[in-house]
Amino acid sequence: MSEIENEPHGDTRREFLKKSSLFTALSLTPLAVLKAAENKVDERFAEMFEKIPLNLKVNNKPYQLSVEPRVTLLDLLREQLHLTGTKKGCDHGQCGACTVHVDGQRVNACLSLAVTNEGKNITTIEGLASGEELHPMQAAFIKHDGFQCGYCTPGQIMSAVACIREGHANSKDEIREYMSGNICRCGAYPNIVDAIQEVKEKGEKR
């Protein structure tokens, strides 16, 4: 295996030939057709020069993708895979609405470039329930009224599941400290803490 993997497309001879033959084809095409094809051509150009392959699993389902290096894991999930359960709040790692698990660890998907997740297993809020059966944390959030508007909730729940798994849910104070990366502007904090504490005490692991 080579030490360097996934070198993106540069201006190699092959790429240059592709590019120039495309230009030749365009110059021979009638204007109307050209106009109609304009957008698509632009997209293909983008693909040729900027996208790189990415293999990962999301909620245990394998994907073989092609992404621009600048695409964040959050935008990949929402815009390309249409998994919109993961929310975009601040987009700067300050609110926690985008929290997902990468190989079991909670991270801010907005600050993670998708391409740096090659080979990883991502779990989003969509991957928590088993069929129609809610994850215990989802059920506890409903029971304890752990949200009002619900926008921060997927991030809160993903963070809460990890908080227990990490062993940092042993008291209300500890839960507050280790959940501080998830902001709730409705102020449902006391109920969120109650929900986490109940799941922790019941010892429900998943």
């Binding site: 360097i4 993997e5 900027e50 290096p69 600048r70 470039l113």
Partner: peptide, 27 residues
């Protein structure tokens, strides 16, 4: 702004790359 991306598992390669390309940075 878009950028080029490369990854490596070898220290020597990482040092070679950073010294070759002036406008590159580690992530």
């Amino acid at each position: 702004i878009n950028f080029r991306y490369i990854r490596t598992t070898a220290l020597k390669t990482a040092l070679g790359l950073i010294n070759k390309e002036k406008q590159s940075t580690f992530i």
